[in-house]
Nucleic acid binder design. Structure first.
Lengths: 327, 327
DNA sequence: GTGAAAGCGCTAACAA
DNA sequence: TTGTTAGCGCTTTCAC
């Protein structure tokens, strides 16, 4: 690759100073039309492209935002990250993909990117990293469906209502033995509202709630194994409220393996309702999160954060039942 | 945010020159242990973090690579981009997400990022952008499953074999009227090998091939409508070889709508075999692409390209039949 | 209206 | 073994 054409070259060709060329480039200050034209002509002739990095050095901003989620290879996160990318792009910001893969070190590294100012902000949906790393800071961070620290604003679905609706759906379908799956979470998390709602509804109905932990970071085979165990431990189960759609689908598979069919022998309700899931598994009844709205809100919050404005600590986005045939 | 601690501050505190501090930072040149310790102590005391942008300005490299694909919100691309991100991360490179969304302008903009040196390279799986934009260049670009220009190396699945295996599977299942879906592609594309194989196999079997175009960039509803039309135009169809799994799933749905069940009344084979798809729709028989290998190869090629080494113009990665119950 | 000059923070010849 | 100096390419204050 040849020498880069720089502003100085443009200036020389146009017979003006570097400064003037810069002002033309940025449409700033007083300029005679003649100068503007000359500079533009020179830029065109040399096929000039400004060096973004040099500009960034001065501004100390890169126009980059990191998206740190467990993995983009998941219907919910894929749809969410796609929506976030679109929102950011519309604001002239690029998204750096950060799949933490449940690897705290990897997550930590993306956080370092922020410290090192290679990115201007962070949208996170994973938090393996030691919370102190996040705590230290008033950095522009927004989280989605995770509680990171009380400095970091959260965007979450209306998980409680979702959990209520899901559980009530199973009750209405006649279920008497409803089991919930969730992930073990020592830390507070909006996700736990799904569980809380499930427990409240069941208790009010005079039934006993029971939750099986399904760690998010395990391979599918391990999750399936845990779900099989539900049917071993509780053959009487006739309803499952899964904390996400993939677990719901695994529950259906596990039931089928032992000759129990959905919905005749078992009702299942999932959570998330990503478009891909509805396409590939349209029969699943689930609680749909409003992903586009969550993305928009998150990016708005981040932009405010970057601009130094105060933001609401929590924003809740409504959910909606999508009726399939599994419950 | 306070003033940034810079190398000069470290140097002053350690009582050395900026240069010496820089050399300690980069483990370069001769240094006495005493100096090293002093500088390290100063760095620790000031909590110094190098300014990445300044470093980039000198090196003219950002350690960023763009991933330009139609959308990450799709099982195949999501798995592929996740795999690419992992490979890149292991080489100290971050991935910038570029969902072209079948918007040529958006794709063009990501290409500009490369021109403007905000990214060091590009891995593309979409090419709406005017090919001349890609042509102009010996820039570090690698494409996956797309032919961009003869300057850009391609990584592709063994689509021809995949198409053969898929079609033969349907024939072996007794299908006599097999229809293929593909996307209309005026440009050459590795994807078309699937179609070519389908046509060759059918012709050899004395049957007449017929392909329905299903544009990739249409909404699902439009795709479904096109697929419904297949059954209207050709009620005799008893086998479908879809060019991707989502189309395969839509075909199953369309058949179900009119009371035709899979696999009794209709056999279906898809293509891609992403993990999410197999989880959500395990019954689907499909041709699985080896996504991790494709990602690794692509990143290797890109690294060579960035390093200025010559690379093979085409790399083909084997595929594998995944037997479900739909064919 | 436009030019000269300083500086963003870091790196690397070249001297010492 | 270390310091001096000159950039990397762009922006901007301040003269003219």
């Amino acid at each position: 690759m040849g020498k880069q054409v720089k502003l100085d070259d443009v200036a020389k060709l146009a017979g003006v100073s570097k400064n003037t060329a810069s002002r033309v480039l940025n449409h700033r200050g007083y300029l005679s039309q003649k100068t503007i034209d000359k500079v533009h002509a020179a830029m065109a002739e040399l096929n000039y492209r400004p060096n973004v990095i040099a500009r960034q050095l001065y501004r100390q901003r890169t126009g980059l935002v990191g998206l740190v989620f467990p993995t983009v290879n998941n219907p919910f996160f894929a749809e969410l990250e796609a929506a976030l990318e679109r929102e950011l792009f519309d604001r002239g910001i690029r998204a750096v993909m950060g799949n933490s893969e449940n690897n705290p070190q990897k997550e930590e590294q993306y956080l370092q990117l922020l410290y090192d100012r290679q990115i201007d902000g962070l949208i996170v949906g994973a938090h393996n990293a030691d919370l102190t790393s996040y705590h230290a800071t008033k950095l522009p961070i927004v989280s989605i469906e995770r509680i990171v620290s009380n400095q970091v604003p959260v965007v979450a679905a209306d998980n409680y209502t979702g959990g209520q609706v899901a559980t009530e759906r199973l009750l209405a379908a006649g279920c008497k033995h409803i089991i919930h799956t969730n992930y073990p979470q020592d830390l507070p998390s909006p996700n736990l509202d799904r569980k809380a709602a499930y427990e409240d509804v069941l208790t009010q109905a005079g039934l006993t709630p029971l939750t099986y932990p399904i760690p998010f970071d395990e391979p599918e085979s391990a999750k399936l194994e845990r779900i099989r165990q539900i049917f071993v431990d509780h053959p009487e189960v006739d309803g499952i409220f899964a904390d996400n759609d993939t677990n719901a689908r695994l529950a259906i598979s596990a039931a089928t393996e032992i000759g129990r069919h959905c919905p005749e022998d078992l009702k299942v309700v999932g959570f998330d309702g990503a478009a891909i899931t509805r396409l590939l598994c349209p029969e699943l009844t689930t609680i749909r999160q409003d992903i586009p709205t969550m993305a928009r809100v998150a990016v708005d919050l981040l932009a405010d954060r970057i601009a130094g404005k105060p933001v609401a600590p929590t924003t809740t986005v409504p959910v909606k039942l999508v009726a399939g045939t599994t419950a």
